[in-house]
Design a protein around this nucleic acid. Structure first.
Lengths: 234, 234
DNA sequence: TGGGCAGAGTGATCAAGGTCACGCAGCAAC
DNA sequence: GTTGCTGCGTGACCTTGATCACTCTGCCCA
């Protein structure tokens, strides 16, 4: 643990295998022998919706935006993947096309594994298969909740409130419990809650006027979490 | 076992174990030894959203409605499961709560398997684990597509058109290629495409006026599939 | 034979929010 | 400088579809 922190501090290279550390030594060794580690800049596209799976991407560092989009250019951001997540598992397991498009939001370190290796390791190591299944299950679960909260709330303000409260909870570990940094543009926030850029701007100013939040640059302070939560009915 | 065979012979049913027929003999036998076959009437609730998983339900016969709903009573139907599908796999694998509510639309024959048995069989038979993972993957995929088509199409008519065309394709095997029987009420159709009952009624009469479809009782004939498809942009 | 009821059809009303059209700030490149 | 670009802020529309408030049908059943 100390060593890990030291290494991280020394050469900002969190061990890329950190993502595999929960596995047994055998599985970890097998994974490390077939992985291909790549460093991507911000804005790099890992894979594109409806293209055949080229493999699984394990995010070691950085955040990745997962989205789907329609022919006329409208985009819906499914979620933002954090370090530790695997992307494209479903497509790789079944040899199908990717369900979404993955694009890095920041410089990222990513381990790539080919579908054939993935399937081989899954049948070789039951532990690994179970882990991948659990991952898929969690992914499925989060998509259901996304669908739920997007479709069952009629107003855009409800969806924005829910998004902000959610961010508060995930950022809570590292930052203050009522303060967060908006790393996405209004446009991207709009794409997350299925509305327009203008509406996001208007809602944020409305929230500010109602004293629910305060904004200083890209920092957003939640002043009245209770009121924000009371907007949520779904 | 004999009793089971007798029962199925008596009621000219497809063998209830048909759902397991793709597995090897060993897995099939293991599954059959732990399954619990139940016959449900229409409208029976198999499990409820956000309740802890009690196990996996393999649908042998009949259709099952999967939905999520908000506190204020609004309901969104995720999809209608057909014979051959497994329900609640994700929740059972991870020991979590059910993502949705499952309710039979017709009398159903269903094999139930407890989470402990599921997990045991998955670690015992790699073939079974892979199959369950594939199933999850397909489920995830269909949910992504649902999310996509619901959120990326602005008009309700587009979503209805997409739903009808989709039904045409799935019913195509058994029925004529441009004719289908509406087995859901307008209310339920509305819950599938995230709109109101009245809007579904209005859209169907609009489609009829525009000669896109014809209706005779609960039978719907698609007169102009091309025009219907041209409404779809997502 | 007349409730009672679920489902379908229809009009009137109204607000949420999409779209268009700007203006403005910050910032990098030349 | 100034040009260009991206992201934010705001006002003026106007369309979509939710909601309410009925009616009308077919159907079950007492």
């Amino acid at each position: 643990m100390l060593a890990t922190r030291a290494a991280k501090a020394a050469m900002n290279t969190a061990p890329e295998s950190a993502i595999f550390r929960d596995f047994s030594a055998a599985v970890r060794r097998a994974l490390e022998s077939v992985q291909c580690i790549t460093y991507y800049p911000a804005g790099a596209v890992l894979f594109v919706e409806s293209q055949p799976s080229s493999g699984v991407f394990f995010v070691s560092r950085g955040r990745v935006k997962l989205s789907v989009s329609s022919r006329d250019g409208k985009t819906l951001i499914l979620r933002v993947a954090e370090p530790g997540e695997a992307l494209g598992v479903g497509a790789a397991v079944c040899g199908r096309v990717y369900e979404a498009t993955a694009e890095t939001l920041e410089p990222c370190e990513i381990s790539f594994i080919r579908p054939s290796d993935l399937r081989r390791l899954m049948s070789q190591y039951n532990e690994f298969a179970m882990r991948m299944t659990e991952h898929l299950s969690r992914e499925y679960n989060s998509t259901c909740r996304e669908l739920r909260s997007l479709m069952l709330s009629e107003s855009a303000s409800e969806r924005l409130a829910k998004l902000l409260v959610g961010w508060l909870d995930t950022n809570g570990e590292t930052r203050q419990h009522n303060r967060m940094t908006l790393t996405l543009t209004h446009e991207e926030i709009a794409q997350m809650i299925g509305t327009s850029r203008e509406t996001v701007t208007r809602l944020l100013t409305e929230f500010t006027k109602k004293q629910l939040v305060q904004r200083h640059g890209s920092t957003l302070v939640v002043r009245n979490r209770g009121a924000l939560e009371s907007l949520i009915t779904a």
